[in-house]
Design a protein around this nucleic acid. Structure first.
Length: 1090
RNA sequence: GGGCUGGUAGCUCAGCUGGUCAGAGCACACGCUUGAUAAGCGUGGGGUCGCAGGUUCAAAUCCUGCCCGGCCCA
């Protein structure tokens, strides 16, 4: 999309230093060599072009004294005679930046010479073009000492704030400082009495080092907390840890195995003590890692689910469910690992491909409403033949079409029998016929599932110990995706099965023991392991004549995340919290979701859908490391003992001794006087860890004067819809009738640069420790804030490099501000009304950004804020405001209004940028703050966001400035063309003619335009004058024309503007009027005055 | 397989409820500066807005299907 009215002057083509042919010398270089033999010969050599000899790479290398850059050694990197490129490649590898600079220097030298050889000329249109003198004076004069004389009279930026962050080195020192000045305590004191903001920490698991996802989570929390704090809240933050649970237990067991000890022989209390020590250790490690990220919080007052007080309150929360009737004991199939001999939590299950034996089995119909069904058999399909001993029903879909067929012919080896009548879902008939090897057949009729109501079948192993009736039951979960349209129901081995059985009062046979083998009472299969049951079961079915077909299927199947072994559904007695019923937890939870703010809003749907469809909450685990479900069951009634006094006793003892007391003390201590322990069964199941973390609001927030209940915000990864958000909601709704949070923020997951999930096997992981060591924590924080964290976040080497670049710009902006503020005194300050428009525009921008930052602090929606701050630093400040104001800041008298206004604005910029950046770049902001306000115990983190006066907003100036910058683009474009043509170098060598539409003529005066465009002058014209130079326009800025002109006069040795008056001051012949005044005024640069 | 969600320049992101947007910053290329200098300024080249259909006078923006990715569930 070329916008330029004129692409390039012919000079451009001639002088552009395009890379020469890969030969020894390009045409340009040859021409130069002819003109300046001696000098070029040297340059030639320095470019590494002179030595074409290859070196033996194996030979030890040593720079010869004559080879002052050591370039000779680099010769070995050359390829195909292109020594130039080989040289560059090496430099680039060593230091990318110096590479670029080095090359530029070489080019310029060559180009200046070229120009001598190519002027004058006539352009293709026949017009004579610039018979311009060389823009650069001969080298001898530029080295003049007079120039240096005035350098000391210029206010150059002075600051202790280094250009390079060296964050890995500097950050730890700042952490120490914050520690030393007791920053956290002072923050709390300073914000006492302010409105509270409570972000309640979701506890990470105290196991292993933190990873990039944990880092993201904590950084986000920290930014939000700090921003709230600086926006005027009391944002206390108490981090916490999740300590109980299987993974730690597993690690301890591993240690036992490694030591050759039998864990079953170890006393449960000793085992728990080791788990406790393990968790304690990792809490310490993770705390240190979180703090290194710059996360501020009450680390000394952290919470842990294994604290005695926490354990006591968790037991008390279970007591609440006990007392309000929601807790009940049921027998429900849970995912069970025969290897670990335990039920697994949902989160402990992973799905992998697994090859299962599939069977189609006849269930002969005993009785049915329709006559023609009575001689038929229902065909079921299952991938778990071992569940057939537990079968007690068959489910059908009421709206499914079923075909009643008569088999006529069968293929060889088929288990089907000609003449038999089978019932199969119509859509699945072809599949079944094929699998069963049925050839000819007749569809006797097609009936709807609901016509099957009341049908009773025989168990396929009838006559072998399975004499009970098997009813056909309707169920919505039956589909015609796969199978036969009939689902065999084993209430002890499936969730749907169990639910259906419950509704129809089916028995729940227990057929499989903890180790995965059939129990002794299971006819025909006692002692057989279910993984090896396919053959015996099929054999029995075959004998019974009920097996119709057998096959294999690869499908996703649940496995243990620890042992990777396949799991089974197994019925065990478990404790549940009723979701519906008298406590109406589901209803309350759904209402609570509506009353909660979700960021992003999609989270609301997700949580709602899950709560709406979830079954009762199974909270018992048959493990050791956790809080016991500390209740008693009355042996006579089988009912749990619901006695508030007992619950209180348990809570009181746990608070003192921890939940170990459940094992160490006799039951009578809990039951109290008046109850005979012999009448009660003590429950030693432990509680689901999700129940524990779901109770953090109870033991961290409730009744804590430093915090508040409910929390303002819960903030976790989007997986916690099923986890912490979910369990906390159920727990609080069941006990307190509302959500423990007012708002929920979810962030996405960290994926690699291609958007794929991180995994050790893919080798695409990024660890926070590595990032900190290489770039620093501020870069990691910057990465978080530059990403859209409501979705997945990508990270990798390239992305981190980019973040480091963004950081560099921010840092240099701060550095320049600090440099410009050197020695700033309150007396210099200029009121808004006296400021030039340019300054007022910057303040307007600050007002806009202030609104943006405060908005983000309020809404937690930070995406884009950092990008805007960065764009402000890069585009508005560095490329525009700073570039323009360098002249005034460096060269004006110290008392000039313009300079003072600029410094006043720099002061505001410093205050705003350091405080706005403080929640994000906690280290750098502090460094920039202290560079300005050195202090023993000061900190930017003790500040609040500056109050921005409303009058800073000025839409009029904003609009005007937008137009000015548009027009400025035409000028810079014109200058660029001239620069490319070799007509000018620095923009101060130009003083173009500007033709503006009438509407724009009042924007600025000529000096104003020169200032904005950084030229030595601007003249206006009503129409483009008939010049020998082509006018310059931009298509997207119609009506604005620029006619380039070189500035007339001499270059002022102090401010480098080219002005006609230079040379008129006898005492300083090299100075312009302004600089003469400055130098002779006595209010010179601070350095000179001091 | 189901639910939710995403796929805009090499990268990070803007583009609200369809018609001056195909944009910004970074990176890259080229040039300038050498008094922000392991910095700074300017100019420029990059995208058939995942793919394929459809609705419409008009789609990055609406619908359908597909492909790819993520979280959760089975």
């Amino acid at each position: 999309m070329p916008r330029r009215d004129e692409r390039a002057s012919p000079l451009l083509a001639l002088s552009r230093p395009r890379r020469p042919a890969r030969g020894r010398l390009g045409g340009r270089a040859q021409a130069v060599a002819r003109a300046r033999p001696h000098r070029e010969a040297r340059a030639h050599r320095a470019d590494g072009l002179g030595d074409g000899g290859e070196r033996d790479p194996a030979r030890p290398r040593r720079a010869a004294p004559a080879d002052r850059h050591g370039l000779r050694d680099l010769g070995r990197h050359r390829r195909g005679g292109d020594g130039d490129r080989g040289h560059d490649a090496v430099r680039r590898a060593r230091h990318p930046r110096s590479h670029r600079r080095h090359r530029r220097h070489r080019r310029r030298r060559g180009r200046a010479e070229t120009r001598l050889l190519t002027r004058p000329f006539i352009d293709p249109s026949g017009r004579r073009r610039y018979p311009t003198p060389s823009p650069r004076e001969p080298r001898a004069r530029t080295m003049s000492d007079t120039r240096r004389d005035y350098r000391d009279t210029v206010f150059l930026p002075t600051t202790t704030f280094p250009m390079r962050g060296e964050l890995p080195k500097r950050e730890p020192a700042l952490l120490e400082r914050w520690e030393r000045i007791d920053l956290w305590r002072r923050l709390r004191e300073a914000s006492a009495g302010r409105p509270k903001f409570v972000l309640h920490d979701g506890p990470p698991y105290a196991n292993g080092h933190i990873h990039i996802g944990t880092a993201l989570n904590k950084i986000l929390k920290d930014v939000i907390n700090r921003a709230k704090q600086m926006a005027g809240y009391d944002a206390n933050y108490v981090p916490g840890w999740d300590c109980h649970g299987l993974p730690i237990e597993w690690r301890i067991e591993e240690q036992y195995r490694a030591a050759g000890r039998d864990k079953d022989a170890v006393d449960v209390l000793a085992f728990r003590a080791e788990c406790r020590a393990y968790a304690e250790h990792w809490m310490g490690v993770q705390a240190a890692e979180f703090r290194r990220l710059g996360v501020a919080g009450d680390w000394a007052g952290r919470y842990a689910t294994m604290d005695f007080r926490s354990e006591a309150i968790i037991a008390g929360e279970i007591g609440r469910f006990l007392l309000n009737g929601a807790l009940y004991r049921g027998a429900k199939p849970v995912l069970w690992s025969p290897v670990e001999k335990t039920a697994l939590a949902d989160a402990e299950v992973e799905y992998h491909d697994h090859t299962s034996t599939t069977v189609r089995v006849r269930f002969p119909i005993l009785s049915a409403p329709a006559e023609d069904l009575r001689e038929a058999a229902v065909v079921i399909w299952t991938t778990t033949p071992w569940t057939l001993p537990g079968n007690r029903a068959v489910a059908y879909g009421e709206d499914i079409d079923y075909a009643l067929i008569v088999v006529e012919t069968v293929s060889e080896g088929s288990l089907a029998r000609p003449g038999e009548h089978l019932l199969v879902a119509l859509p699945l008939l072809p599949d079944t016929l094929k699998e069963a090897g049925i050839g000819q057949h007749v569809v006797r009729r097609v009936l709807k599932g609901r016509e099957l109501a009341g049908t009773i079948c025989a168990h396929p192993l009838r006559g072998r110990g399975y004499e009970f009736d098997v009813p056909l039951l309707p169920a919505a979960f039956v589909t015609t995706d796969q199978g036969t349209g009939f689902v065999h129901i084993a209430p002890g081995h499936g969730e749907d099965d169990w639910e259906l059985g419950r509704r129809h009062g089916l028995p729940v046979p227990e057929t499989v023991g903890p180790d995965g083998t059939f129990l002794p009472h299971v006819a025909g299969f006692a002692g057989v392991h279910v993984y090896k049951a396919a053959d015996p079961v099929c054999a029995a079915l075959t004998q019974a004549g009920t097996l119709l077909s057998r096959s294999k299927l690869v499908h996703a199947y649940p496995h243990s995340w620890r042992s990777k072994a396949p799991l089974i559904f197994r019925t065990t007695p478990q404790w549940f919290i009723r979701i519906d019923g008298a406590t109406a937890i589901r209803t309350k939870a759904l209402a609570a979701i509506e009353a909660t703010r979700f960021v992003p809003p999609q989270g609301q749907n997700r949580l709602r859908a899950m709560i709406a469809s979830r079954p009762d909450w199974c909270i018992s685990r048959q493990r050791a490391w956790g809080v016991p479900i500390a209740i008693f069951v009355d042996r006579r009634t089988g009912e749990p003992l619901r006695d508030p006094a007992v619950v209180q006793r348990i809570v009181a003892i746990f608070a003192q001794e921890g939940s170990d007391a459940w094992w160490t003390r006799p039951a009578s201590d809990f039951l109290g006087p008046g109850r005979d322990p012999a009448d009660y069964e003590q429950v030693f199941d432990i509680v689901d860890v999700w129940f524990e973390s779901g109770s953090t609001h109870a033991f961290v927030l409730e009744g804590n004067p430093a915090l508040a209940w409910p929390a303002d915000l819960y903030l976790e990864g989007s997986d916690q819809h099923r986890g912490w958000f979910h369990s906390s909601l159920l727990e609080a709704c069941g006990t307190r009738g509302r959500a423990p949070y007012r708002a929920v923020l979810t962030h996405g997951f960290v994926v690699d640069e291609q958007g794929r999930k991180m995994s050790k096997s893919l080798g695409n992981t990024v660890s926070p420790q590595e990032v900190i060591a290489e770039y620093g924590a501020d870069i990691l924080r910057l990465w978080v804030m530059a990403s859209d964290y409501t979705e997945d976040l990508r990270i990798g080497p390239e992305i981190l490099k980019q973040q480091a670049e963004l950081y560099r710009r921010i840092r240099n902006t701060l550095r320049w501000i600090l440099g410009g503020l050197d020695g700033f005194a309150e007396a210099e300050r200029v009121p808004l009304a006296d400021m030039p428009d340019l300054e007022r525009w910057v303040l307007h921008r600050l007002a806009e950004l202030d609104a943006r930052v405060r908005e983000a602090a309020e809404s937690f929606a930070w995406t884009g804020v950092f990008a805007e701050l960065h764009a402000f630093c890069a585009a508005d400040l560095s490329a525009f405001y700073f570039d323009i104001r360098k002249d005034a800041l460096y060269c004006d008298r110290a008392d000039s209004l313009r300079r003072r206004a600029c410094r006043t604005v720099l002061d505001h910029l410093h205050r705003c940028l350091t405080t706005w950046l403080a929640p994000l770049l906690v280290f750098t902001a502090e460094e920039a703050w202290l560079a300005r306000f050195p202090s023993e115990d000061g900190s930017v983190h003790l500040e609040t966001f500056p109050a921005i006066p409303p009058e800073w907003r000025n839409e009029t100036i904003a609009q005007r400035m937008a137009r000015i910058r548009e027009i400025r683009r035409v000028v810079t474009g014109a200058l660029e063309r001239e620069r490319a043509a070799g007509a000018i170098g620095a923009s101060l060598q130009a003083a173009p003619i500007l033709v503006l539409p009438a509407a724009d003529r009042s924007l600025l005066d000529a000096d104003g335009w020169a200032e904005i465009c950084i030229t030595s002058g601007i003249t206006f014209a009503d129409t483009p004058p008939d010049a020998d130079v082509a006018p310059f326009t931009l298509d997207d800025v119609p009506g604005v024309t620029v006619i380039p002109r070189r500035a007339a006069g001499e270059k002022c040795l102090r401010c480098w503007k080219v002005l006609p008056e230079v040379g008129t001051h006898a005492d300083h012949p090299g100075l312009c009027d302004r600089c003469h005044d400055a130098v002779t005024s006595g209010v010179l640069a601070r350095r000179a005055a001091a």
